[in-house]
Design a protein around this nucleic acid. Structure first.
Lengths: 201, 201
DNA sequence: TATATCGCCGAACGGACGTTCGGGCGGCGG
DNA sequence: CCGCCGCCCGAACGTCCGTTCGGCGATATA
């Protein structure tokens, strides 16, 4: 029975081990650089070094391809942040670790999460609910981190989260590799919030 | 009966010039809600109540239509911020006025500037240089406002501008009318920066 | 009233799109 | 050594795209 199990696993590995991952990367790259609608299946296929029709062996449609890119992007960043939060520390240190991980994956972690930031499945897409649920659960991590923060009275943690995540998520539009590192940017952004900027004239 | 109404409107519009402005609004709306590539000339024409071929009387191509939407969006927000800065005030008050105007136009000022935030002309587009120059000049306003701020030593005003504008520009993704007003959001965001959040536990 | 111009119509064109499908090749189980 | 099946090819199909163009009614000019 070990033979059967091993053979089955080998078959599965072979099936998923082929060029499906390569194809997903090509799709993420094309979706990121051209946008979902402008990136044609022919572009993606050429990027992955295969024929357009061959894509449909791995994915049933272009829309599902985008959903798969989203799921991979969300999976990566969720894992990176979760791993960064394994280290113990105070509330501010934990938030900083999460922001550093978030920005690092976004800006230097390949095309998947940037593609997630750029393109969203259409409102009518049946796979949209899945990816929005993943996004909501991910952002809940930051909501919890902010809840754990000892903030002055009256600070709206909801809007604070929107500001912090918005500032970070927008960065993929202006970031160019080689200048400031994502970790440094994250720490600077957090510093702007932690320290008082108004010197009181 | 639709013919009669359409004919009447045509006569009225005719007296005001033509339907170019209406067409531009339809283009901004479609570009915003569907994205540039997914919005077809037929969609835009139908939204404006005309035939697809008629667009080409006003604009030479779809790409130029996007450029025109960008220019109108940038014109509107630049004017709104300039007008907000006419009132005298201290550095922080002036920055707050600019942020309030920026967020108000972005979130409640129609589809033009949101379309600008969502879609950019392609890198090969000859009109792209024009719109990027308009964007650069606009963001310079905020750079000047930050330069005028009496900030603590060592604060990176460049990254501070990227954080502030990024947080605001991202807001069109989560903002829904009826809740907090854009002005209130802008003031809260600025408050997070001005006041110290770290209570120093 | 003749005429030129403006603003738009309506139909068409060539091409690119997402997707389908029969077939073929190479490695693995028997 | 044969037959099977995972994986991909190559060519098509119908549809929709951006764009072009001849024409037409209404308006301004004379």
């Amino acid at each position: 029975m070990a033979d059967v199990a091993q053979a089955a696993r080998k078959r599965v590995v072979r099936r998923q081990g082929n060029r499906r991952a390569l194809l997903l990367e090509a799709a993420a790259r094309q979706f990121l650089h051209q946008g979902y609608a402008a990136a044609s299946m022919r572009d993606i296929a050429a990027d992955a070094g295969m024929q357009p029709g061959s894509i449909y062996y791995h994915f049933p449609s272009k829309a599902e391809l985008l959903v798969a890119v989203h799921e991979e992007g969300m999976r990566r960043i969720t894992e990176a942040v979760a791993q960064a939060l394994e280290k113990p520390g105070g509330p501010w240190a934990r938030l900083e670790a999460a922001c550093v991980a978030h920005l690092t994956v976004l800006l230097e972690g390949g095309d998947f999460f940037q593609a997630v930031m750029r393109e969203m499945p259409a409102k009518s897409d049946p796979g949209r609910r899945r990816v929005t649920r993943m996004r909501d659960r991910y952002e809940e991590i930051f909501a919890d981190l902010l809840d754990a923060l000892p903030l002055p009275r009256g600070v709206d943690r909801h809007d604070l989260r929107l500001m912090l995540l918005g500032a970070m998520n927008w960065s993929y539009r202006w970031y160019r590799p080689g200048a400031e590192s994502p970790a440094k940017i994250a720490r600077k952004f957090l510093g702007f919030l932690r320290n008082r900027l108004d010197t009181g004239t």
